[in-house]
Design a protein around this nucleic acid. Structure first.
Length: 794
DNA sequence: GAGTTTGAAACT
DNA sequence: CAGTTTCAAACTC
C-alpha cells in the first residue's frame, strides 16, 4: 500500500515491454491509485472501516462493496437497478468485459505478471506464483478499490457488477487479484469502457466471472470457500453474499492455499447476454478473444500465475457451482473440466453447451435464474423449491473438474453458504434449482452431503411444477404469505403473482417491509423447520444422533383438521415431527407425533430418522417431498440467515460476539412460553434440560429452541463453526451453538441480505471491526445472532 | 382450472 | 395476549 512499494512495483511493471503495451491499451494508473492509500481513504470515508474484510473472504468484500455502493451510491444503485432490469446486460458492460477478456488473452502471462506486480506494488513484493497479490494484500487493497472505483462501477454495472463482485469474492488467494480485476473492470465500466491493463490482466483471472456477470448470471465457485455463491442481479444481493466463504475461505485457504487460490466463478451466458456481448464487441473479437483467452489461459497455465492457472484449469469455482450441480451430478458429468472452456466458449458463441444439454428447448434467461433463487425456508417448506428452476440449473450446469471434490466442497459450501441478498437468493435458487433439476441425477449422491439436493432434484425433476412459485394477488408479495418473500427471494417469472412488489426494482419497499415484519416478529423469516439432522451430521458430524426426525418445527404447528398429515401442517411439510411447541389437535404426524414428541422427545431426536422413514412409507410422495425439502437442503439450512436481519438488529451484532451474553431469542421464549403453556411445562423443561445437557442436544433442541438459545446464531456448526469459531471468541460461548449455526443459516432468508446491504455498510464496519478476523460466516452468524440477541420487538 | 379447505399471517 | 380477519397454499373435484 505504501507509496514506495507502489513505486517499486510500478517501476517493475514499467520495465516490462508488456507494461508499455498494456499502457497503450489502457491506463492502469488509476487503478493503482485506487488501490493505493488514496483508495483507502476513500474507503474509510465510505465507512468501510473494517479491514477485516481483508481477512475475510472475498464475500465480505463483495458485501462491503455492495454495501458501499448501496449506501454511498444508493441513488445510483436504485436508478441503475431499475435500469438493470431493463438493461441487465448493458452492452457497455459486456463490451468491457469482452475487452478485458481480450486484453487478458493478448497479455497472457506477461500481463498477468505485470498485473500481479502492480498489485504487489501496492501491497507488497510479488514472487513467482506469489506474483499474484496475496490475499492479505489484496484485502487491504481490495476494500480500497471497492470503495473508490467500485462504487461508481457498481452503480453502473448494477447487477452485472454485483455478480462480478461476487465472483471476485469467491476467489480466495486470487481473490485479491480478482477483486482488483473486478475493480478494474468496474472502473472501466464506470469510466465508460476504458480498457485497463490491470483490469484486463486481472480479468484474465476473473474475466470468466466478468463475462458471466455481464451475461447475467453468475455462478460463483468457491472451492475453497465452498460456500460462496452467487451473484446476483442486484448489487444489494451482492452485499449479502457474506457467505461463510470468508470464514471457510480463510480456513480452507489456509489449509489448502494452493487450491484455495483457485476460486472460480462461471457464468453461463444467456442468450441475451451473448447477444448483448456480441453487440458490444465484435463477434470475431468476442468469440476469439474469449476462446483464445481461455485457451491461452489453459495453455499458458504454466506461465500464468498459479492463481490464474488454477482457476482456469481447476475451475474450482465450478465446483462450487457443482454444489448446486452436484446434486445434479449430471451437469458435472457432462461438463466436467471441459465444461469450463465450453462455457466460456459457449458464452462467447451465444449459447452454452451446458444450457443446451440441460434444456435444449429452454434457454434459461438470466432473469429467470435470478429470480429463481430458492430460499432455504422455501425449500424446507415446500416442494415448490422445485420451482427454482430447472432451466437455470441446466444452464448453469457447469461441470466441476472433480465432481467429488465439488461435492465435498458443496457440502461445505452449503454449510458455509450464506444467502446473499435477493439476487444472491436467486443464485441460490439457481443452485437449488439446479439441485432440484439434478436431483434426478443424483449420481453425485456420492457427495453424501447433498442428499437433500438429490432429493429435491428428484422432487423437482419429477414435479412439473418445479418452477412454480408464488401466486399472490393481494399481498403484493410483501407478506409472509408470499412464499417468495418469506423465502427472501424476489419473485421471478415462475411466479404468477399480481401487483408484485417483491422485485429488485422495489428493493427498498421490500426491505422496509421485511424490516417491519421482522420487527414484529424477529423469527418471521427464520426457518420454520429446524433440521439438525443432515446438516448437523454431515457438517458437524458432532450430532450423529440428530436425524431428520429429530428436526422439529420451530414454532410448532396449530393444525386442527389436517391432523398434521397434510401440507397444511408446517411440521409435516417440513418433514419433521411435531414437538411440544406444537398446539395441534389430533396430531398424527407421521414424522413424529406431538404427544410422543413431548413424552419422548429425546428418543425422537435420536430416532427421529426412523419415524421419518416410517412416515415416508405411508406417504411416499409426500414424505419424499418433505424429506427432500428438509433434508435435501441441509446446507440450505446452513444458508445464512438474513443479513438484513442482522442489519436491522445489527446493532447488536458486535455486542453479541463481544458480549458474553447469549443472544436471547425473544421469540424463542415466546415460543417456549407458548409451548409451555399448551404443552406441559414439565415436558418442555425436560426437553430443554435434555438439550442443554446432551452434547447432541444441540442439534434439534437448539434449533427448535433456536429461539430458545440465542446461541443458535452463534453456533456455527461445522463449516461455519470452523471459520467463525476460531476468531469469534464470543461465538465459542456455547459449544452447542455449532449445531445451532447450521440451523440458523438455514433459516436465514435471502432478503435479509437486502436489508443487510442497506444497513450493513455502517453496521458492518462496527461488526467487522469486532470480528476482523472473523470470517464472513461469522459475520453472517453474527448478524443473525444479533437479531436474536436483541430482544428485537420485545 | 375452478372451487374449497386449511392454517398461518396479519390485523384489531 | 387473544380473537378475528385476511391470505395464499394445499387440496379436491
Amino acid at each position: 500500500m505504501d507509496t514506495p512499494d507502489r513505486a517499486a512495483a510500478a517501476a517493475r511493471a514499467e520495465d516490462s515491454p508488456l507494461f508499455s503495451f498494456i499502457d497503450s491499451l489502457s491506463p492502469i494508473e488509476p487503478l493503482k491509485s485506487a488501490y493505493s492509500a488514496s483508495s483507502i481513504q476513500a474507503y474509510q470515508s465510505l465507512n468501510i472501516t473494517s479491514i477485516s474484510s481483508i481477512f475475510t473472504s472475498p464475500h465480505d468484500n463483495a458485501q462491503k462493496e455492495s454495501k458501499l455502493s448501496k449506501s454511498s451510491f444508493a441513488e445510483f444503485s436504485e436508478s441503475e437497478v431499475c435500469a438493470d432490469e431493463s438493461d441487465k446486460n448493458k452492452p457497455s458492460k459486456s463490451s468491457n468485459a469482452v475487452r478485458l477478456f481480450a486484453c487478458t488473452s493478448t497479455l497472457t502471462q506477461a500481463t498477468h505478471k505485470i498485473t500481479s506486480s502492480v498489485s504487489e506494488g501496492t501491497v507488497g513484493p510479488p514472487e513467482g506464483s506469489n506474483d499474484l497479490p496475496q490475499p492479505g494484500q489484496f484485502d487491504s487493497g481490495s476494500p480500497d478499490h471497492n470503495t473508490t472505483p467500485c462504487h461508481g462501477v457498481r452503480s453502473d454495472l448494477k447487477q452485472g457488477k454485483c455478480r462480478k463482485l461476487q465472483a471476485f469474492q469467491t476467489a480466495k488467494t486470487n481473490t485479491s487479484e480478482k477483486r482488483k480485476c473486478l475493480f478494474s473492470t468496474e472502473v472501466q465500466l464506470m469510466d465508460g469502457c476504458q480498457p485497463e491493463k490491470l483490469n484486463d490482466e486481472i480479468l484474465g483471472c476473473d474475466w470468466d466471472d466478468l463475462i458471466s456477470a455481464t451475461s447475467g448470471e453468475l455462478i460463483a465457485y468457491d472451492e475453497d470457500h465452498k460456500g460462496v455463491q452467487l451473484a446476483v442481479s442486484n448489487a444489494e444481493s451482492c452485499g449479502f453474499l457474506l457467505s461463510k466463504l470468508t470464514g471457510d475461505g480463510d480456513i480452507s485457504d489456509r489449509t489448502h492455499p494452493s487450491s484455495s487460490t483457485q476460486t472460480y466463478y462461471r457464468e453461463l451466458l444467456m442468450d441475451e447476454d451473448q447477444t448483448e456481448n456480441a453487440q458490444l464487441v465484435p463477434d470475431g473479437e468476442k468469440n476469439i478473444s474469449t476462446e483464445e483467452i481461455q485457451d491461452n489461459l489453459y495453455e499458458a497455465n504454466g506461465s500464468i500465475p498459479t492463481g490464474y492457472k488454477v482457476e482456469t484449469q481447476q475451475q474450482r469455482g465450478m465446483r462450487r457451482r457443482c454444489l448446486v450441480f452436484e446434486a445434479a451430478g449430471y451437469s458435472n458429468r457432462i461438463v466436467q473440466k471441459e465444461s469450463v472452456m465450453d462455457l466460456s466458449v459457449s458464452t462467447c458463441k451465444g449459447k452454452s453447451p451446458v444450457q443446451n444439454h440441460s434444456n435444449p428447448g429452454k434457454t434459461p434467461s438470466p432473469r429467470v435464474l435470478r429470480g429463481i433463487g430458492l430460499h432455504l425456508n422455501a425449500l424446507a417448506l415446500t416442494s415448490k423449491d422445485k420451482m427454482i428452476c430447472q432451466d437455470p440449473m441446466s444452464s448453469l450446469v457447469p461441470s466441476s473438474a472433480t465432481q467429488q471434490e465439488a461435492h465435498g466442497k458443496m457440502l461445505s459450501a452449503g454449510e458455509n453458504f450464506i444467502h446473499p441478498g435477493g439476487e444472491l437468493l436467486e443464485l441460490q435458487m439457481d443452485d437449488d434449482c439446479s439441485a432440484g433439476v439434478f436431483l434426478g441425477n443424483d449420481h453425485d449422491s456420492s457427495q453424501s452431503n447433498s442428499p437433500q439436493k438429490k432429493r429435491r432434484k428428484s422432487d423437482n425433476g419429477d414435479d412439473g411444477e418445479a418452477c412454480k412459485r408464488c401466486s399472490c394477488k393481494k399481498s403484493k408479495c410483501l407478506k409472509l404469505y408470499c412464499e417468495c418473500f418469506a423465502a427472501g427471494v424476489y419473485c421471478s417469472e415462475p411466479c404468477s403473482c399480481q401487483g408484485c412488489l417483491n422485485k429488485p426494482i422495489h428493493e427498498e419497499i421490500v426491505l422496509s417491509t421485511r424490516k417491519q415484519i421482522e420487527f414484529r416478529n424477529p423469527l418471521a423469516f427464520a426457518p420454520k423447520v429446524i433440521r439438525m439432522s443432515d446438516a448437523g451430521q454431515d457438517i458437524t458430524g458432532e450430532d450423529p444422533n440428530n436425524t431428520p426426525a429429530s428436526a422439529r418445527h420451530k414454532r410448532g404447528c396449530n393444525c386442527k383438521k389436517s391432523s398434521c398429515l397434510k401440507k397444511y401442517c408446517e411440521c409435516y411439510q417440513g418433514g419433521v415431527g411435531c414437538s411440544s411447541n406444537c398446539r395441534c389437535e389430533g396430531c398424527k404426524n407421521t414424522f413424529g407425533k406431538r404427544d410422543a414428541a413431548v413424552s419422548t422427545e429425546a428418543e425422537e431426536m435420536k430416532q427421529g430418522g426412523e419415524e421419518a422413514e416410517n412416515c415416508g412409507k405411508e406417504k411416499e410422495n409426500d414424505l419424499q417431498k418433505a424429506n427432500a425439502q428438509s433434508e435435501d437442503h441441509p446446507f440450505l439450512e446452513l444458508v445464512p440467515i438474513t443479513p438484513p436481519f442482522d442489519v436491522s438488529s445489527s446493532l447488536l451484532k458486535p455486542p453479541n460476539f463481544s458480549s458474553a451474553k447469549p443472544p436471547r431469542p425473544t421469540k424463542a421464549r415466546s415460543n417456549s412460553s407458548r409451548s409451555s403453556s399448551k404443552a406441559p411445562g414439565a415436558v418442555h423443561s425436560q426437553k430443554f434440560s435434555k438439550i442443554a445437557n446432551s452434547g447432541l442436544n444441540e442439534e434439534m433442541p437448539d434449533i427448535l429452541r433456536d429461539d430458545a438459545s440465542p446461541g443458535n446464531c452463534v453456533k456455527t456448526s461445522s463449516p461455519n463453526g470452523k471459520r467463525v469459531s476460531p476468531p469469534h471468541n464470543a461465538l465459542s460461548v456455547s459449544p452447542s451453538r455449532k449445531g445451532g449455526r447450521k440451523l440458523i443459516l438455514k433459516s436465514i432468508p435471502s432478503f435479509p441480505s437486502l436489508i443487510g446491504d442497506a444497513s450493513s455498510g455502517s453496521s458492518m464496519n462496527s461488526s467487522e471491526s469486532a470480528f476482523n478476523t472473523a470470517s464472513p460466516l461469522a459475520l453472517a452468524s453474527y448478524s443473525y445472532a444479533c437479531p436474536w440477541n436483541q430482544p428485537g420487538p420485545s
